[in-house]
Computed example of a mutant assay.
Amino acid sequence: MTHKSGFVSIVGRPNVGKSTLMNALVGEKLSIITPKPQTTRHRIIGIVNEDDYQIVFSDTPGIIEDPGYKLQELMNSFVESALEDSDLLLFMTQPNEVYAEDAPIIEQLKKVEIPKFLIVNKIDKSHQAQVQALIDLWQSRVKFDEALAVSALHAANTTALIQLILKYLPEGPPYYPKDQLTDRPERFFVAEIIREKIFEQFQQEIPYSTEVHVESFKETETKSGEPLIRIHAFIYVERESQKAIMLGHQGKSIKQLGAAARKALEQWLETKVFLDLHLKVREKWRKDEQQLKRFGYK
C-alpha cells in the first residue's frame, strides 16, 4: 500500500475562516476562533492521519497589508514562510472581500511553484452566482490548480477538499507519529484558550495588547482524589491603564475572565482545573524584538 504525506498551508486575510477550516479538517479545536480580526498570531499545525496518508495542515495568521508593530511583521513572516516551505497551498477568500489588482499577495501567489488551490469560504451565506463570479475573478488573476467553495463553519465540502489534496500530495512516509494531532505542547494551547477568552470579553485595543504566558502546569489531585490540573499564568499588557481595565472594579473583570477560561480549559483538558491569573505590564512589548522572542514569536 502506498502512503502519501505532505505539508499544506492555509493563507488569507484575517477573519476569512482559516482557523475554522483547519479545525474542521482536523476534527479538533486547535486554533482559537473569535469574531475579531488577527486572533491567530502563530503558525499552528494540525495533522490528519489515515492508514494511507498524513496531511500536515498549517494555519497561518491573517495577511496584514500595513503592519504597524514588530509583532505584525513577524505574523506576516509566518505567512511568507508558509508560501515557501509547503507541498501545497490553500488560498482562502470569501464573497465581498476586495483585493486591489496590485495587492502584494497576488504577485506572491503567481510566484508560488507548488500546487495551489483557491478556497472560497462562507458559501452558506452566499449565492452560487456570487461564488462563481469570485472564482472566475481570481482565476483571471492567478492560475490556481483547483478551486473549491466550502463552508468551514458547517464543514461543507471538507471531505471533497481532502480528496483533492490527496490527488496532489507526494508519496512518502509520515512526518509525525500517527497518533499525533499537532506539534505544539499543551501549555501553548492553554495560553491560546485564555487569550481567546480575553478576545471575547474585552473590547477595543485590550485584546491586541495582551499576551499570555503559562508559568506552571501541574497535574495533581483534589483532596478527594480526583484529577486536578493547576495552572498559573501571567497576562501581559502594555499600559497600567489596560491592567486596570482588565482587573476591573474590585477584581470583577479578571475573576469573570478566569471563570470563563477555566470552564473552557476543563472542557478541553477533560478534567478539573485550578486557574490562577496575574496581570503584568510590559511596555511596548509588541514592538520589542527580544520580548517577542521570549513570548515564542520566532
Rank of each mutant, 00 (worst) to 15 (best):
I123Q: 10
V142N: 05
S209F: 09
K36Y: 00
Q204W: 13
Q163V: 10
S253L: 05
K287D: 15
D276I: 07
Q250N: 14
E101H: 13
Y176K: 10
Y175T: 06
I123N: 02
L89S: 06
N96W: 12
L269K: 10
T271K: 15
R184Q: 15
S77P: 00
P61Y: 00
Q291A: 12
M22F: 00
A233W: 01
G27N: 00
F91I: 02
E65Y: 02
S58E: 15
K122F: 06
A244H: 12
R286E: 10
F144Y: 11
K116L: 02
P14C: 08
I119P: 03
F295R: 06
F202P: 12
I106T: 01
Q256M: 12
D52S: 13
I245W: 04
Q132C: 01
L166P: 01
T34D: 05
I33Q: 03
D276H: 14
E84V: 07
V214N: 08
R294N: 11
V190K: 05
M75G: 00
E211G: 07
D102E: 13
P173H: 12
P207R: 11
G258D: 02
K252L: 12
V48I: 11
G172I: 04
G12N: 07
T20H: 03
A259M: 11
L153W: 09
N76I: 10
E171D: 11
S9P: 04
D59V: 09
V56H: 01
Q204G: 00
T34Q: 06
H127Y: 09
L164D: 11
S77Q: 12
Q291R: 14
A100W: 10
Q242A: 09
P174Q: 10
I123V: 13
A244Y: 09
A147R: 00
P14T: 08
F144P: 04
K18G: 07
E283D: 12
F188M: 08
I231K: 01
E192H: 08
K243V: 05
E266D: 05
L164W: 05
L247G: 06
H278R: 15
F117D: 05
I194K: 03
K293V: 05
K29R: 15
R41M: 09
N96R: 14
W268V: 04
F202L: 09
T182E: 03
I245C: 08
I162G: 04
K272L: 11
W268F: 15
E270W: 07
V120S: 02
G46E: 10
T2G: 08
L134I: 07
P14E: 03
V237Y: 02
L279H: 04
H42N: 12
S224I: 05
S19W: 00
F188V: 07
D102M: 08
R195C: 00
K223Q: 13
I45Q: 15
A156Q: 13
V131D: 05
Q204Y: 15
E205C: 11
D85T: 12
I63W: 01
L166E: 08
L25C: 06
K4Y: 03
I55D: 03
L71G: 00
L279E: 01
L247W: 14
K18S: 08
R187F: 03
D87V: 07
V56A: 14
